[in-house]
Design a protein around this nucleic acid. Structure first.
Lengths: 144, 144
DNA sequence: ATTTATGCAAAACTTTTGCATGGGA
DNA sequence: TCCCATGCAAAAGTTTTGCATAAAT
């Protein structure tokens, strides 16, 4: 039994094949710890294995998003999202509105709220994304 | 003094002009209570005033996002975001992974966490977006 | 009056699709 | 072997830009 990304296991459980394209895209995203746009992912994939085509990257991103492994989120000026890893179903970060730096953090303490919402709204919740917007210490210093 | 959208006031405070294009885009988004894609916004704007061009809609969306009035967020099924109103700087919703219905809710109770984060990470926080993913009651019933 | 913002149309990108072929299970 | 997934290249969308003109302040 090889040690491998837990995400590979998710693919397997859902009956999807473990292809080279999917493996490479996953590796790129895990290495980058998220925060890559599609263009950056395509470029990094190309560097690792030029035989993987753009279309497969997009197809992999779409599949991973559908499976809850990734989540696109919009930062900085453009309308192209960056992809964050939803490890354990959730992700949390702070984005600086000035320099756009992203600071991930764990321990969001939303378990209670999640259970309350499930009861109150009568639904099942599998994961969440929590984003804070603000001004980081460096930018505050620079502004002063 | 006219009664008017508080967002108009934000534009004014930042020295931006209150133009017809911006007024119409704002009205469309407030009427829609968010959750419109750029294409839907362009279409609705066109219906209200055909003289407003696409480019101005995109420019308005970009400005409003920069000012923290709007936030683009991804909904499954396409890579083009829907825009949610960040009233009071924050927004909270639950998205059903099956039917994609979006259920907004208030009262996120994140004030404590916000203050803790500000202290812990030494930064200033102005707003946030909290998204939960799950399966709504209807879809659970349909699945059973 | 002074600029900022607009509308138009073209250019630039990004994402999606169709189809023959290759690679996992 | 079977058929899902791929690569390619073209098509389809979406967003951005340049510039002369209009409209806010």
């Amino acid at each position: 039994m090889n040690k491998q990304s837990p995400y590979i296991q998710i693919l397997r459980e859902h009956g999807h094949r473990i292809t080279q394209a999917r493996r490479i895209v996953l590796r790129v995203i895990e290495d980058a710890a998220g925060h890559y746009t599609s263009a950056q992912i395509i470029q990094a994939v190309e560097a690792l294995d030029p035989r993987v085509g753009r279309a497969s990257v997009f197809r992999a991103l779409e599949l991973f998003t559908r499976l809850g492994i990734l989540r696109p989120t919009y930062i900085r000026g453009g309308m192209t999202p960056v992809y964050v890893l939803m490890s354990g179903g959730h992700h949390h970060h702070v984005i600086c509105s000035e320099c756009q730096v992203i600071h991930d953090f764990d321990d969001c303490g939303l378990d209670d709220m999640t259970r309350q919402l499930e009861t109150r709204l009568n639904l099942r919740i599998d994961g969440h994304l929590l984003e804070f917007y603000g001004v980081c210490a460096d930018c505050q210093a620079a502004d002063a």
